[in-house]
């Protein structure tokens, strides 16, 4: 069982490395300031929530595998799996995973609190996306460092009244 989990995380990481890395390597703030790649401008609320969560930390890109569809047919119901590569020991574990949307009316989608008892830092849920945008995942580590992942999702039909 643990082997299978490791493989699935690895394959998703490979996917992230190959597909999304080129995108995420551009610093978030640079794109927020009007790079042509940004089709949906990050909302002011997103910027505020992001700044508050990050605080004085400098989030490092990597170690987070986010499974989201490239294109969401129905923005009301978008499955998401988040896995953070962490030993989940007392000395080194993920304490929180924050899920943010850059262009929903409410930027802060969810926060998940974890501890070593979870053994594997992975959560699954379903989220709403009002329109095509970046989904940002932040992971807070027990040592105080933060990780970040950015995933662009094309939304065909936006979540109604999100």
């Amino acid at each position: 069982m643990p082997d299978r989990i490791a493989i699935s995380i690895l394959s998703r990481r490979t996917f992230v490395a190959s597909g999304v890395a080129a995108f995420t390597m551009t610093p978030l703030i640079a794109r927020a300031d009007g790079s042509p790649k940004a089709t949906s401008e990050p909302s002011q609320e997103f910027k505020d929530v992001f700044a508050k969560l990050v605080g004085a930390a400098t989030p490092v890109d990597g170690r987070i595998a986010v499974d989201l569809p490239e294109t969401a047919d129905n923005g009301n119901f978008v499955p998401i799996t988040i896995a953070v590569d962490s030993p989940m020991t007392e000395a080194d574990h993920v304490t929180a995973i924050h899920l943010l949307s850059t262009a929903n009316p409410h930027a802060h989608v969810a926060t998940f609190h974890l501890s070593p008892v979870n053994a594997i830092a992975r959560v699954q849920s379903r989220m709403r996306l009002a329109k095509t945008q970046d989904v940002i995942v932040l992971a807070t580590l027990s040592g105080g460092d933060m990780l970040i992942s950015t995933t662009r999702v094309q939304v065909a039909i936006g979540g109604c009244g999100i």
């Binding site: 119901f77 802060h108 053994a119 959560v123 989220m127």
Partner: peptide, 14 residues
């Protein structure tokens, strides 16, 4: 937050 879909589904490890 309101960005979680109706009939909230959540899975975690333990």
């Amino acid at each position: 937050g309101p960005g979680i879909s109706a009939n909230p589904y959540l899975a975690f490890e333990m």
